[in-house]
């Protein structure tokens, strides 16, 4: 019981959009595909939904071919739900009639609509409202309830939270995750928001320039990105030149640090990547490895700009410190910076 994409490629005219993408989504899993705009993530979703056809490759659901060089199942016979960016509610129909839209005429019962509204945590009083009378978050939940009427095996969510305000976004996202959890449906979300992708489900996939560069559990993808670009896309990074020692450790500006993951592929020159959250600062009078070159107050604390090394090999990084600790630093002071938890190794840059 899985959704399987095999070697999907797609181009619009001369512009390649997706390049040899393969993916397997186990039944009931939630997977988020994250990528910047133009990475082909929406196109991938539209291929699965049946609104576009792949140039090469195939798509299968539970062993049934949905899309292949030989045959194509049209969108309305795929049993795949789709929630568009703006919800795509039918503006001429009430909430209840929107939800009942795809039900067979005989099965359009009030009870079933109410059941779905309840599942989607929608107030039953909203049933007779028109879409324009709903908030953005409510519209998205109606769109989700409407998609669930078909009891789809898979539901596709195309940036469903991007049109919402920041506060509403987190709240709606949690509500949608809960609804999907309750209904046990396989869900595939595309987004350009890394936090949204990392917190959505069991798996996260990173798309870049039409390729699926990494798939895995959110924690492991964040912890061990396959390359620097993925690392930088998923969070802030500090990248410093390093020298591999014999015993699974490197020497760098942070001193000798253990290697957590080695993605250098045996390159001669390597760089060490750490997340700013791993840095541990101490004001020091003795030996130091960094200088504070700037302090910016953020109200709740301060953001220090640190410079490691000097001359052309100098590296800058920002590090947040809480308010009570901020007074200890001033521009120009020397600090010693240590790294907690090891580094990830990549081939040297440039």
């Amino acid at each position: 019981m899985t959704l399987r994409l095999n070697n999907i490629s797609k181009a619009f005219g001369a512009t390649p959009v997706l390049n040899d993408v393969s993916l397997e989504v186990p039944d009931g899993a939630r997977i988020a595909l994250v990528g910047s705009s133009g990475s082909g993530k929406s196109t991938l979703l539209r291929l699965i939904g049946g609104f576009e056809q792949p140039d090469t490759g195939s798509i299968a659901l539970d062993g049934r071919e949905l899309s292949s060089p030989h045959a194509t199942v049209p969108a309305h016979r795929r049993g795949i739900g789709y929630v568009a960016q703006d919800g795509a509610l039918f503006p001429h129909l009430s909430v209840a009639r929107n939800i009942a839209f795809g039900m067979p005429r005989a099965a359009r019962r009030k009870a079933r609509v109410q059941e779905l509204m309840e599942l989607a945590s929608l107030d039953p009083a909203l049933a007779d409202r028109m879409p324009h009378q709903l908030s953005g978050g409510q519209q998205q939940r109606v769109a989700l309830a409407r998609a669930l009427t078909q009891q789809p095996k898979v539901i596709l969510l195309d940036e469903p939270f991007s049109a919402l305000d920041t506060g509403l976004r987190a709240q709606t996202r949690q509500a949608v995750v809960d609804i999907l959890e309750r209904s046990g449906v396989t869900a595939l979300l595309v987004t350009h928001d890394r936090d949204e992708a990392l917190s959505f489900g069991q798996q996260v996939g990173v798309l870049a320039e039409g390729r699926l560069v990494q798939v895995g559990a959110p924690a492991s993808v964040f912890d061990a990105p396959v390359d620097v670009r993925v690392a930088a896309f998923l969070g802030d990074v500090v990248l410093v030149p390093a020298c591999l020692t014999a015993t699974d450790a490197v020497d760098c500006v942070f001193g000798r640090v253990p290697v957590r993951h080695d993605h250098s592929g045996g390159a001669d020159r390597v760089h060490a990547m750490v997340r700013p959250e791993q840095l541990h600062l101490a004001r020091t009078a003795g030996p130091s490895n960094a200088t504070v070159v700037g302090i910016r107050s953020t109200g709740a604390g301060a953001e220090l700009t640190l410079r490691f090394g000097d001359g052309s090999s100098a590296v800058q990084a920002t590090h947040r410190v809480p308010l009570h600790a901020a007074d200890a630093y001033e521009t120009g002071c020397s600090v010693s910076v240590a790294v907690n938890g090891g580094i990830v190794l990549y081939p040297g840059q440039g």
Binding site: G49, G50, F51, P74, A75, H76, R77, R78, G79, I80, G81, Y82, A84, Q85, D86, A88, L89, F90, F101, G102, A143, R146, A147, T149, Q150, L156
Partner: peptide, 18 residues
Amino acid sequence: PESLEEAARSLGVAPFRA
């Protein structure tokens, strides 16, 4: 918007009826 017709199709309604 065309996305409305697509939404209808994803709900199992054939393109012409959508």
